[in-house]
Design a protein around this nucleic acid. Structure first.
Lengths: 193, 193
DNA sequence: AAAATAAAATACCGATCGGTACGTTATGAT
DNA sequence: ATCATAACGTACCGATCGGTATTTTATTTT
């Protein structure tokens, strides 16, 4: 009964996500967004609400996609220790490959918005807790297969590995030497025995 | 030969540091700064230069103060393992105590500015490397005293602990449960044997 | 006391911010 | 074919942004 939408909602949200991921919330202007999303300002507001709501939609899109990506990658390898090694190395490689260190959109948001906005405090926490459970389940798989010692605390180690992953992702933004991060990963992996 | 300065340069810089630490670079306006520093806008520009230069001065003040604070705290305890345990627990307690999670000014800057500004990439990296050396020297002290096994790799473990400290500091912004961070710290400390 | 000078205070600059009112255009329902 | 409706495009809103020109005030040197 009216004009049809000319843009793909998923595509423009993906574009907004990429931009917020690169620049953060404050440093991204509505003009930046219209350019990158390829739609006009009123289209953004009628489709997603204001800037904060658009940001939230972008972050939700990111965390859902990221969680399933992490789950898949850790399930790929029969060896749990090798799965984690591959996973951490991939994170590092991606950061060293790209000229711009975007890191993790959720971690960036945890730093920029979580302290001043309860909604994002909760959203980012829940994502990390979700990843922590994936880590834990992976470690428990290693225990059941006999690869890992049954005396280790799967939950605690999973939580420590999440903390280390966050630390790695963040310190990559300062471009430390390769040996620094390689050393860190090797030490972290000794927790899986 | 002219009018005398009415404000204490150190004090107003300290005030600027606190504000940038709380809100970050982009979210802090010149109006915020004049209010908090208690001086007028032209005084800021004549004393510190523009907003970025003021921010840099504030960050340098922070990193210098923080480095010596960390060094002191780790030297305080004869037991290296207890020193680290105290140190990590203090970081956690401070974050849980305060209503606003400021985290670490240097880490915040690593996330917000380092990817887009080489000056801050270098500045934040060098601070982390400096802390890493303090950690390493502390671990080596533990080896020499016989508290720690001489077969461990002091440098690699120090680097892994720095990564974990960053991860802990960042995830605290999402206010995880106490058990989450306590578990993480306990696991990390098992690296010191 | 007067001149020189730098700090302080006020007021202002153009640019950009997030957000919206409004006129135009295209499409589905009748 | 017409009408209702919603998306699109333009143009604009007041507020605030970082930064500065200019005037006033206080202090030291002469």
């Amino acid at each position: 009964m009216a004009r049809t939408r000319e843009f793909d909602e998923e595509k423009v949200l993906e574009a907004a996500m990429q931009l917020f991921w690169e620049k953060g919330y404050e440093a991204t202007s509505l003009s930046d967004l219209t350019t990158r999303m390829g739609i006009q300002r009123p289209s953004i507001y009628s489709t997603f609400g204001d800037k904060k709501e658009l940001f939230e939609a972008a972050l939700r899109r990111y965390t859902m996609s990221r969680a399933s990506e992490v789950r898949t990658k850790l399930q790929n390898n029969p060896s749990v220790k090798e799965a984690f090694r591959h996973f951490f190395n991939e994170v590092i490689d991606e950061e060293y490959t790209e000229s711009l260190s975007r890191g993790c959109f959720c971690i960036n948001t945890m730093v920029e918005l979580a302290p001043h906005d309860e909604k994002f405090e909760i959203l980012t926490r829940e994502h990390q807790m979700y990843l922590s459970v994936i880590f834990q389940e992976t470690i428990e798989r290693g225990i059941q297969s006999g690869e890992l010692d049954s005396s280790i605390d799967a939950k605690a180690i999973a939580q420590a590995l999440i903390v280390s992953l966050i630390g790695l992702t963040v310190i990559m933004k300062s471009r430390p030497t390769r040996s620094f991060v390689d050393n860190s990963i090797e030490v972290m992996l000794t927790l899986l025995r």
